[in-house]
């Protein structure tokens, strides 16, 4: 299977949100002059979970972006045929020129990662930096990650690297193409 992926190392993610802003800058998602909080598109978000009670606590942080699903529900939902999974890379891409702004993909996305440009009436989301990776560059989020918690590559190779580093895949989080790993215990 051809599938490019990002691996999120929960041992290293500190939830700093650097990737979110770097991604926004790269894709011009923010009107720096006028945008107000709560109105800006974002291709990533940070989530966290704290378990236990004081003083025995554990907390993990991770980022959620388009999971580039194996069988993307957004593709099925889009009657205009604007979304496809690239055969060469496994990246799920939205063609904004074909998109009619029906928002069906947004309704069906289980990860709530698809954004909508109301002014230009199209859906948009993380493309795994398709235009960068096909020229040998890493996705922006991977390049700027403050904690080096993100790595990019072929999914199977990333799995091999995780195994070599003694990290386990968090299976319930890694059901699609993006991998979440952490050390056991």
């Amino acid at each position: 299977m051809k599938q490019l992926s990002i691996m999120v190392d929960l041992d290293r993610c500190i939830g700093c949100k650097t990737c979110i802003v770097a991604c926004r800058n790269h894709y011009g998602l923010v009107d720096h002059e006028k945008s107000m909080p709560g109105t800006m598109s974002h291709y990533l978000r940070v989530e966290s979970q704290c378990t236990g009670s004081y003083p025995n606590l554990k907390e993990d942080y991770w980022v959620v972006m388009c999971q580039h699903c194996k069988k993307p529900p957004c593709i099925k939902a889009c009657e205009a045929g604007a979304i496809h999974k690239d055969v060469q890379t496994g990246i799920v891409l939205i063609d904004k020129n074909t998109c009619v702004g029906a928002k069906k993909c947004i309704e069906k996305c289980p990860y709530e990662v698809i954004q909508f440009d109301a002014a230009r009436t199209y859906a948009h989301k993380c493309s795994l930096c398709y235009d960068r990776v096909i020229h040998g560059q890493e996705p922006v989020c991977v390049e700027v990650c403050l904690a080096d918690a993100l790595s990019f590559g072929e999914r199977e190779i990333l799995l091999m690297h995780a195994d070599a580093a003694g990290k386990k895949v968090v299976k319930k989080m890694s059901t699609q193409s993006i991998l979440y790993v952490k050390s056991p215990g």
Binding site: K17, T18, V21, A22, N25, G28, E143, V144, L146
Partner: peptide
């Protein structure tokens, strides 16, 4: 348009720095 850490100086820039363009 964009900013990032300088690789010659350990190459990192945090979220505040990334948002500096909005201040500008």
């Amino acid at each position: 348009r964009e900013v990032k850490g300088n690789p010659r100086a350990r190459g990192k820039m945090c979220v505040k720095g990334m948002a500096g363009i909005t201040t500008l």
